[in-house]
Simulated scan of single mutants.
Amino acid sequence: MIAEKLSITKFQLFFVLIQTQIGIGLLSLPNVVQKSAKGDGWISIILAGVVIQGLLVVYYKLLKKFPNNTLTNITQKILGRSFGKVVNYIIYFNFILTGSIATILMVKIINLNLLPLTPGWIISLLIIIPCIYLTISDLRIIARFFVLVSGLIILLLMITILAFFIPKEIQFILPIGSAGVKNILIGSNSALFSMLGFEMLLFVFPYVIRNTTGVLKTISLANLFVTSFYTFITFLCLITFSPDQLQQLREPVIYLFRGLSYKMIDRIDLIFFSIWIVPMTTSIIAYLFLASKSISEDKKFNKKVVVINGILIFLISLIPHTDEITTILNKYVSYLSYAIVIALPVILLILSFIFKRNERGETT
């Protein structure tokens, strides 16, 4: 059983999932979905949310069969110890790459919008150090921090109200469905990659107090919140910028506030971005935690593993990355993520029913 001091509540689980999902991907999401789905990009995000909800149900059914085990242990119980370890190292590799990409993109955006003269390695170091410091704490501390900073999301929603003072053109999204089913589904695939992070459930479920009841409702509400938040921001961008403008703006969410100016407050876009740095950082913390848990046999992972993983992410972020290289890396990491986030849990659930595996890893 999980020690009481390491456990988290369902309330904390809600915010852990939100903070893991909401991150740097939102800034460019309207640009990404508009490339294929055009004005129907907001529909693509809703469909992505539906797919995620289905995956969460799969996760929940799998984890209910192994309520005291993380994905790391479940793979070994179902696939065998040797092959399970191989799979776990693939999962570890994916989380390291995902955390590295998030760090690289965050450094690039900060360099471009806030600190153009600051060397990238300094920004990366300033990001990684607090991430390591928080991750070496127990999960309850991480969860409390995520709950605390979630208030900033409400503040960001309040700031977006100011964007309604910018002229809007509802015709940019009309007629609804004009992009076609195929293009909407392609946009949905792009949105799904930006909304990754819900796989956190596979590693924190055993730590949730009384995880046999009420968890499905909690994770469903978290998914509903994230999907609604992403849909709202994307919809706002779609009716603010023309299709040609969205193609040219790589981070349209930031530019959404650039045209706003008041006598007492100026550069609202910088205020928004400065606040958004926190949700971007929590995503890196989450993936650093996931990478460390994916190769840990015990309930409490070694703090040295966290430090080593943090250093590894920092070193990868120092490698020169052109836009072309980053795009290619994103593409292959997305394929690997889908295999781990979608295919693996489904396969494990099917095998658990076929071989009737229980909590002890024995055939019933």
Rank of each mutant, 00 (worst) to 15 (best):
A143T: 15
I129E: 00
T75Q: 03
I74P: 09
C131P: 10
L112I: 13
L114N: 05
I132P: 13
I109G: 05
T72E: 11
L112E: 12
Y92K: 07
V86I: 06
F83V: 05
L115V: 03
L112G: 05
S100F: 04
I90F: 15
D138F: 08
L115S: 07
P119D: 02
I122A: 11
I128D: 07
L117Y: 07
F93R: 03
L114I: 06
K85G: 15
S82W: 11
L115M: 10
I109Q: 07
V107I: 09
Q76I: 01
G120L: 06
L117W: 00
I129L: 05
Y92T: 14
N73F: 02
L112M: 12
N111P: 03
I136L: 13
I109F: 13
F93N: 07
K77Y: 09
R140H: 13
I96P: 04
Y133W: 10
I109M: 10
L97R: 00
I110L: 10
P67T: 12
T98C: 13
L71P: 12
L139V: 15
I123G: 02
I110F: 02
L105H: 08
Y92C: 13
R140P: 13
S82F: 12
S100H: 08
M106W: 00
L139A: 10
N111E: 08
V107M: 03
I142V: 11
N94Y: 15
I127H: 04
T70C: 06
I110Y: 00
N69E: 12
I136Y: 14
I129P: 02
I96T: 15
N88L: 00
N94F: 12
L117T: 03
I74Y: 05
T103F: 08
L125I: 08
L97Q: 11
V87S: 08
V107C: 06
I78C: 00
A102L: 14
L71T: 03
Y89K: 05
G99I: 09
L105D: 03
K77D: 01
Y89W: 09
Y133Q: 01
I127W: 06
L105Y: 10
M106Y: 07
L114D: 02
I132N: 06
I96A: 05
R144F: 13
R144N: 15
Y133D: 02
L105F: 04
R144D: 09
I104Y: 10
I90H: 10
I96Q: 04
N111M: 08
K85A: 11
I127S: 04
T98H: 07
V107F: 04
I74K: 06
S82Y: 14
T75L: 03
S100N: 04
L134C: 11
K77P: 02
R144Q: 13
L97I: 15
N69Y: 02
D138C: 05
I128G: 08
I142H: 09
I129G: 03
V86P: 05
W121L: 05
I142P: 10
M106S: 14
L105V: 13
W121N: 02
T72M: 11
G120A: 13
S137R: 14
I142T: 14
P116Y: 04
F93H: 13
I96N: 05
I74C: 02
I104W: 05
I101A: 11
G84H: 06
I142M: 06
V86S: 07
N113A: 00
